[in-house]
């Protein structure tokens, strides 16, 4: 006991660390509930496709259109494909996908687990000797960890398609030239670091939203708060992670 506030903070940190540690413990221990994981992957992956498609495509078009004047000022509009590719692969695709998923999937996980908690469905699992953490939290977090990287790649491709549409109508660039320009500027490090970021983001969304839902207190209002906190805290964590990971990758690039 140091001071009530400090104590509470320490306990909160400890609880969250334990929650994360428990996920990795369950990861190496059967059963893995493969069916439930696949169901969740469909829920997270397939159901997010329309939103990710639309957002990716619009971002591709708009970002290209907005970047053109600055490059044209230097007579360098032929650099558009490489500029856009770098922007999309390194930054936009993972970040945009993660933000969409924290909104769509995070709120769903928070609300779903939250209402299961307040209606005692989680207790019902526990007294039936079913591990609710494994069946609910593990499956959902694994699904987001796998699906956010997949959606990130998809989002990147759709954004490139949007960008190509805009470039080919304005600069009459052919598809092969566009792809050649684009992909010759990015390295494997760019692709891998982007995927690594997406994996971290996916895990973050799953574990934070599950934590909020799993520890919901107090009826309908509590469920609302859990859904809301799931989204807000996921987004907050994603921005912090983005800032940190960019520093690390920058250091790797300099080596």
């Amino acid at each position: 006991m140091i001071a009530p506030g400090v104590d509470r903070f320490a306990v909160a940190v400890y609880d969250r660390a334990l929650f994360v540690a428990r996920f990795f413990l369950e990861l190496v221990r059967p059963p893995w509930h493969v069916r439930a994981v696949i169901d969740q992957c469909i829920e997270v992956g397939i159901r997010s496709l329309p939103l990710v498609s639309l957002t990716g495509f619009v971002i591709g078009i708009v970002f290209t259109k907005q970047s053109r004047p600055s490059l044209e000022a230097f007579g360098a509009s032929s650099w558009l494909p490489s500029l856009i590719t770098i922007a999309i692969v390194r930054a936009l695709a993972p970040l945009v996908t993660a933000l969409i998923c924290s909104g769509r999937v995070g709120s769903q996980i928070g609300a779903e687990l939250g209402s299961m908690r307040v209606t005692e469905q989680i207790d019902a699992m526990e007294v039936s000797a079913i591990n609710p953490f494994k069946y609910l939290v593990f499956t959902r977090t694994l699904a987001t960890t796998l699906m956010v990287p997949a959606l990130t790649m998809y989002c990147g491709l759709i954004a490139m398609a949007g960008s190509f549409l805009n470039i080919t109508t304005n600069e009459k660039t052919s598809l092969s030239a566009f792809l050649w320009d684009g992909f010759s500027t990015i390295s494997f490090l760019d692709v891998w670091s982007s995927l690594a970021k997406a994996i971290v983001f996916g895990f973050t969304i799953g574990i934070i939203s599950s934590f909020q839902g799993y520890h919901t207190k107090g009826g309908t209002q509590g469920v609302g708060r859990a859904a809301n906190q799931a989204v807000v805290l996921s987004m907050f964590a994603i921005f912090i992670e983005e800032a940190l990971i960019v520093q690390i990758i920058g250091a790797l690039r300099a080596m």
Binding site: M116, Q121, A124, S128
Partner: peptide
């Protein structure tokens, strides 16, 4: 265990 509010899934 039979729950007060049934707690069906």
């Amino acid at each position: 265990y039979s729950f007060q509010h049934s707690a069906l899934y």
